[in-house]
Amino acid sequence: MTPTNRRTALRLLAAGAFTTGCAATGAVAHPASTSTHAKPTHAPTPRHYPGLPAQLTHGPRTHPRVALTFHGQGDPAIAHSLLTEAERHGAHVTVLAVGTWLDAHPDLARRILDGGHDLGNHTQRHLDINAMSEADALAEITACADRLRRLTGSIGTWFRPSRAPRASPQVTRLAARAGYPHVLSYDVDSLDYTRPGAAAVTRQVLGEVRAGSVVSLHFGYPDTVAALPAVLEALDRRGLSAVTTTELFS
């Protein structure tokens, strides 16, 4: 090797070592975490379901499946606990992530996908999107979509409006413009965000859930973590499988 080639090789090796060091430094300290500088895990993209409305509240009532959907925000430790508990029961869930939450905890995008769960868009700042101007509402949707794409290679599989159970016609139209053919609503509200206690969350979900239901739950509330095992065990006794929303509509 000539001196010139040797110097070039050394510079390339040094650059590679520096890149590896940046990735290691940027990783979040959690056993399930991977560096946000690593190659993205490519997530599925939104799907169009012909014959179904632009706004979906539940899946087919003819199959013994339900979708547990979580608003992605709050303490990341609780998020990890909920995902681990779901996986322990063989369940898969759908997480609609808030963009600012992904900014603060980017490793969770990979954690969700690596667990076999759906990951979607719940706007950038979790404001009342139905009350916004067209430009501001579109910016909320696309800003979160951009973060999802950067972290996973996809804008996510679903969009859910923030601060409202259903999207206005304007928001539904803007979501389609951003690449989401359907807005994901729900037919069962766990009311876990009211902090009623784990037993009340369990009763609320089990009192309303049935085949095809889409259940609204939240990361960030200890009551939800405590309620999840009882909810999953009861669903199993009823012969209802907890699947991703994509699986529910497939």
Rank of each mutant, 00 (worst) to 15 (best):
S81C: 04
F70Y: 15
L52S: 12
L96R: 02
P53T: 12
P106H: 04
T57I: 10
T62H: 14
L83G: 09
H71R: 11
G99Q: 05
A104R: 10
A97I: 07
A79V: 03
D107S: 14
A77M: 05
L83N: 02
H63A: 12
H71W: 00
L108V: 13
E85I: 08
Q73K: 11
T62C: 05
D103S: 14
R65A: 04
E87V: 06
L96P: 00
A77F: 00
P106I: 06
L83K: 04
L82R: 06
Q55G: 02
G115D: 08
H63Q: 12
V93A: 06
I112C: 06
T69P: 03
I78C: 02
R61I: 01
P106V: 07
L83E: 02
T69F: 03
A79W: 03
A79E: 06
P106G: 05
T69V: 11
E85D: 10
H63E: 12
T69Q: 09
P76E: 03
A109H: 11
L68S: 06
T94A: 08
F70H: 04
V93M: 11
L82D: 00
R88K: 14
E87G: 12
H92W: 01
D107E: 15
A104E: 14
D107R: 01
G90M: 03
D75Q: 13
R88L: 07
D75I: 03
L56E: 06
D107N: 09
R61C: 01
A97L: 08
P76Y: 04
H105I: 08
G99I: 08
A67T: 02
R110H: 15
Q55M: 14
T100Y: 02
R65E: 12
L52E: 08
A91Q: 06
